[in-house]
Design a binder for these strands. Sequence first.
DNA 1: AACTCGGGGCA
DNA 2: TGCCCAGAGTT
Length: 212
Amino acid sequence: MPPEAVRTFFSRLRAERPEPRSELRYRTPFELLVAVILSAQATDASVNKATETLFRVADTPEKMLALGEEGLRRHIRHIGLHNSKARNILATCRILLERHGGEVPRSREALEALPGVGRKTANVVLNVAFGEPTIAVDTHIFRVANRTGLAPGRTPREVERRLLEVVPETFRRHAHHWLILHGRYVCTARRPRCGACPVADLCAWEGKAAPG
DNA sequence: AACTCGGGGCA
DNA sequence: TGCCCAGAGTT
């Protein structure tokens, strides 16, 4: 997609959803980190419900460890993959205390070394908590980037690399948020709402004229 | 690259 | 009822 079209693309996405990022609800990097670990393959509504009560009880690594695996599972039982997530969160808390003074580390390498934290989660924390212009490629962004022709790639890493090349600096910080919301509400996996899409005229998807 | 974890949402 | 979801770890 030509640079001028890319600029128009993000201008329209920003106008479509100007509200602040949902991650800003979290008060500390630690709360954000735990919430993003929980959000893997889960809906944000189920994560919001769990963290609302969980963080009233345990908003630090120390309190989370004091809660214990059983106590933690009680809060996140309604979230998918909760067994491994409970285990990973507590293991991460131990590492935060042992190696990072109880704080969330600011480097990608240290973040990705935490149990339950992969590239996507690390990118979200780096962007939202520490203000770095990363783009976290999840399934939504992977689909939108490929379908529209904005930044096509065979793997998430390739899509991320091409997004970092193509997204103008002024849109970089919030690009992943707009792309995710667009993928969730408009450019959906099953039946994309191309009739309501603000960037349909810039989109390369051949099926965009399909009925429905 | 393929497989597993997993309850909830949605058609 | 069947399929997908704001992924990560293991093999």
